[in-house]
Simulated assay, not measured.
Amino acid sequence: MTDTQIDTSAEPGANDFLQLLKPRVMSLVVFTALVGLIVAPVHLAPVTGFTAILFIALGAGASGALNMWWDADIDAVMKRTARRPIPAGKVAPGEALGFGMALSAISVVMLWLATNALAAALLAFTIFFYVVVYSMWLKRSTPQNIVIGGAAGAFPPMIGWVAATGSISVEAWLMFALIFVWTPPHFWSLALFMNADYDAAKVPMLTVTHGKKVTRNHILAYTLILAPLALALGFTSIGGWVYLATSAVLNAGFILGAVAIWLRNEDQAGADRYKTEKRVFTFSLAYLFLHFGALMVEAMLRGLA
């Protein structure tokens, strides 16, 4: 991290601090954690459940703020992130650091008080993993950054499950595995059409270190590994025919998209030359939301039975 020039003439507003929390990423964290909590065999009181999700969300936001503090120099170089609060000069790095540390402490302690020590410990580890292991170490040192670092985004449904049950089961691990293996093809699809950004920032994304052809091979390989893991959830206590049918369709679509990326002509030119990658990236977002949405439908159907 390097110092970032800040315009001290203007005070940061509430929206600037909100953007530090990475609200779009937080929405995925909240949704998957909520599903993990809802599908668990132990049901929390509504107020307790809401409190648990609130502090899991705050923990995710704390991770985002600390990540933006550390990565301010990278964010300033990349077009996709140059308007974030710190490189845009709206929030000072020290303010972001203090904000993130405070939210981290509050979220972990309050989740412990609201639910149990194991859920709080998992949240604390998730924050540590995302900020220290991924942001400070992996992101700038290895092309496997997004593979290993993807664990941080895979913990929320497990935390939701543990908040309700106080224990970890095969269902929680499979929800974790679904997000963990989904993350590389999802982000590498983005990296293929944002490669210039990562190259300029000297982030060793696989597209930068090994080239686009190798990245396309990896996307296909991980997508093929992902499909059976996703389907396996359908045969657990939280799965069912709705989930299995949804997963089968989604995985067929993801594999077809990965094959299309794998077969794409590297020499293709023009403004729309990355339309396949953009389409697969967009589909991958729907893929994850719909898988967890199907798990929620299954839980509702069991409640009606």
Results as ranks from 00 to 15, higher is better:
300 M>E: 15
123 L>P: 00
122 L>D: 08
299 A>Q: 08
281 F>I: 04
208 V>W: 03
48 T>Q: 12
70 W>K: 06
205 M>I: 02
296 M>R: 13
52 A>S: 11
16 D>V: 06
19 Q>D: 13
91 V>W: 02
176 F>K: 09
91 V>H: 01
250 L>Y: 01
252 A>Q: 07
262 W>Y: 15
235 F>P: 01
50 F>D: 01
210 H>P: 02
108 V>N: 09
49 G>N: 06
207 T>E: 02
219 I>F: 09
82 A>F: 10
174 L>Q: 07
299 A>M: 04
203 V>T: 08
115 T>F: 08
270 G>S: 04
86 I>S: 03
256 L>S: 12
276 T>R: 11
38 I>K: 13
274 Y>S: 03
282 T>I: 14
203 V>L: 13
239 G>C: 08
249 V>H: 01
33 A>G: 03
235 F>K: 00
65 A>S: 14
82 A>L: 09
135 S>Q: 06
109 V>P: 01
193 F>A: 10
87 P>C: 08
239 G>Q: 03
191 A>G: 07
285 L>C: 07
144 Q>F: 12
233 L>N: 09
195 N>H: 12
72 A>N: 15
118 L>Q: 09
10 A>N: 09
257 G>E: 04
86 I>G: 00
208 V>A: 02
158 M>N: 00
214 V>N: 12
41 P>D: 15
62 A>P: 03
240 G>V: 02
197 D>E: 10
200 A>P: 07
20 L>F: 02
204 P>D: 10
151 A>Y: 05
269 A>E: 15
258 A>I: 08
203 V>M: 12
162 V>R: 00
213 K>S: 12
246 T>I: 04
182 W>G: 05
294 A>E: 01
275 K>L: 13
153 G>T: 08
298 E>Q: 15
165 T>L: 06
3 D>H: 12
97 L>Q: 03
141 S>P: 07
302 R>T: 15
227 A>T: 08
78 M>Q: 10
241 W>D: 11
303 G>V: 11
57 A>G: 14
52 A>I: 07
210 H>C: 08
143 P>D: 06
103 L>M: 14
74 I>Y: 04
183 T>V: 08
65 A>D: 02
204 P>E: 11
